[in-house]
């Protein structure tokens, strides 16, 4: 990634404009909340996506945010990244208090990656069926059935 950067209200984004990447890294939960609050105040008013990346022994949780009202910011898909160590239930603070639009997105990330968003008002499964017992299907260590379905009885 190139070393270009952009500063918005004192927050330095690592950017790669050709690829549409504007990233800021949060060091821990408190820093994340502080960053989010400042970014909200700067004009990022909605959350486009919440997701995670399985980095092997760690998980990177990502919030993609953008702006509807601020013309300068609305061209960016900014992302806040928080890297935490991987366990069965990873706990990170929720950003629904800051961006309410993150509600369903965080629920989806919870069921797919096992990231529990502390303080989320409604931390339940969303897309997967009720009787699904597998753990965290979007993680890379989720066992995939390699047999084609035709062979199954």
């Amino acid at each position: 990634m190139t070393a270009a950067s952009r500063v918005i209200t004192g927050i330095t984004f690592t950017t790669d404009e050709a690829k549409g990447i504007f990233e800021v890294e949060a060091s821990d939960g408190a820093h994340l909340l502080d960053l989010a609050t400042r970014l909200k105040a700067a004009g990022f008013d909605h959350c486009l996506s919440v997701t995670a990346e399985d980095l092997g022994d760690r998980l990177a949780v990502l919030w993609h945010i953008s702006s509807y009202t601020n013309r300068e910011l609305s061209g960016m898909n900014a992302q806040i990244r928080l890297v935490v160590s991987k366990s069965d239930n990873v706990e990170v603070p929720t950003l629904t208090g800051i961006w309410e639009s993150a509600n369903f997105l965080e629920r989806e990330t919870y069921e797919m990656f096992g990231v529990v968003f502390k303080g989320h008002p409604d931390m339940r499964r969303l897309l997967l069926p009720d009787d699904f017992t597998g753990k965290w299907p979007m993680r890379k260590d989720f066992p995939l059935k390699k047999t084609p379905w035709r062979v199954q009885k």
Binding site: M1, D16, G20, I21, H64, S66
Partner: peptide, 13 residues
């Protein structure tokens, strides 16, 4: 590397 993209579809972004 990583990339993002946004497109205005019929129902939204």
């Amino acid at each position: 590397g990583r990339s993002t993209a946004s497109v205005e579809a019929g129902r939204g972004e």
